[in-house]
Simulated scan of single mutants.
Amino acid sequence: MSEVKGLYDIDSLDIAYQLLINNEELMGLAGSPDKVFKYHVPEEHREKSPIIRLHPISELPTEYADNQQLGWDCILQIDVWDSQNARKIALKINELMKTIDFKQSTPTYEFDEETYLIRDGRRYRGTILADKDLQE
């Protein structure tokens, strides 16, 4: 993520979304960027696996210098639903999230008896700093 961002221009959800949809290997596993959603999965897509959903959990001010906030401490939830490869897709996402210094915590695994899909949900936490030159 080489784009320069001011503190209030930072969108952790969009940073992660762009990271995922622009990765050829992940899109090969998922099928296309049309399988990746922010916040919620529209009903008409809920049974067309694989499905990837991202949503923010927390975004707290962090990293201060000279009494000015420099960044955000972010927690994102990324869920993968698939009939067979949920873990493989989730592990690729884990690898990608590490490239922006987001670390995984709180995994959730479950089987949905209505859709017969496996859910692999993981939370990621990281700090995104603003460009110092844009703070002044």
Rank of each mutant, 00 (worst) to 15 (best):
L76R: 00
H40I: 11
L29M: 13
F111S: 10
Q104N: 13
D131H: 06
I21C: 14
I93M: 01
L54A: 06
G28Q: 06
L60M: 13
I89S: 03
R123P: 05
H55K: 09
D133S: 15
Q135D: 11
R46P: 01
E43T: 07
H55C: 13
E25V: 10
D66V: 11
E3F: 03
R46K: 07
V4N: 01
T99S: 00
C74V: 03
N94D: 11
S2I: 08
N22D: 10
E113M: 07
D66K: 12
D79N: 09
D112K: 03
Q69L: 08
I15C: 09
D120A: 14
L76G: 01
L29S: 03
D73N: 07
V41Y: 06
K35W: 00
E114C: 06
R87H: 06
N94P: 07
S2C: 13
D120P: 15
A90G: 15
H40Y: 10
P42L: 01
V4E: 02
H45T: 04
E44T: 14
I89M: 09
S105G: 12
E114Q: 10
P107I: 05
P42Q: 02
D66Q: 14
T62R: 04
Q77C: 14
Q104Y: 04
G6V: 09
S49E: 12
P33V: 02
Q84Y: 04
Y17I: 03
R119Y: 08
L26D: 01
L117I: 02
Q104C: 09
G6I: 05
Y8L: 11
Q104I: 07
N22Q: 08
L26P: 03
I57P: 11
I51Y: 08
T62L: 04
F102W: 02
Y17R: 05
Q135T: 14
F37M: 04
N85D: 15
C74D: 12
K98E: 12
P42C: 04
L134S: 13
D11V: 08
R53C: 15
R46S: 02
Y39N: 12
P56S: 10
A30L: 05
K48H: 10
L134Q: 12
E24L: 03
I51C: 13
E113T: 03
G71T: 02
N22G: 13
L7K: 03
K48E: 12
R119L: 12
I21H: 07
K38N: 05
N23V: 10
R46T: 01
F111H: 10
